[in-house]
Amino acid sequence: MHRFLRLSVLLMGLFAAVGSYAVDAPQSEPVDPGIEGSAIDKSAKEKSDSGGSALSTWESKYFGLGSEGEDDNVGPAVEQPIEFPHFRHAGDADKGGMEINCMYCHTYARRSLVAGIPPVQKCIGCHQNIESVRDKPRIKKLFEYWDAKKAIPWKKVHDLPDFVRFSHERHVKRFIFQLNRPVQEVCGYCHGEVKTMTVARRQKLLSMGFCVTCHEKDHPVTAEGGTPIGDQAYWYSMRKPLIDASGIIKAKGPNDCSVCHK
């Protein structure tokens, strides 16, 4: 009798848990003003509504394995003091963008741990010569900060936990300078399609699993047009390089815990 009672209590608990999860589930859908390409989220929603296999949803959520632009794992919409139009500055020319190099503004990315937020001076440097947009509300706001001699209190969008050490410098040096890949593609590995966004928003999970999926891949050690590797010192932290059939030397990223965890 006692055992039967225990079982029934357990079952009731289970049903209650499942029920409450089902009630909560639709509410956890992300709401998203601020992303220019909201088609991304629409397609993601449609996918989850149509009840795609649970595993594939889970995979795309945690590893970004879904096809391009189907991640439903966007970060929270961060309200910035000025709605900075990334798509206008960095976007493709045929979509009205300027195709400005990411590192023109985020200038510390190539030489420091953090990419950095540009000072107001950098914005003004260009915008004082651009008369055509001077009376736009965002630009007016920008000049208000400039005249008041105050920094713009931008908020952090891509925030890693305190126990993680991530170096922009290493990744920029590796992929942009060593492998000679386009800047926006390389930044997009972790930051997503910022060039289509207004206010930047986290598109990738940036979890350990996310990092490891890339560190587990064989990347060519150097590429045509990239800076050649002079010394062994460059890639000692990579794992033992392999030479594949076509003669290209490939190596995996560092996988030592203490490289990223501090």
């Binding site: 030489r111 410098e169 040096k173 590797i229 010192a233 203490s258 501090k262």
Partner: peptide, 12 residues
């Protein structure tokens, strides 16, 4: 880590 990072950037 900092020392190794600096050294690596300078290829030494």
């Amino acid at each position: 880590t900092v020392a190794k990072n600096n050294a690596k950037s300078e290829g030494r």
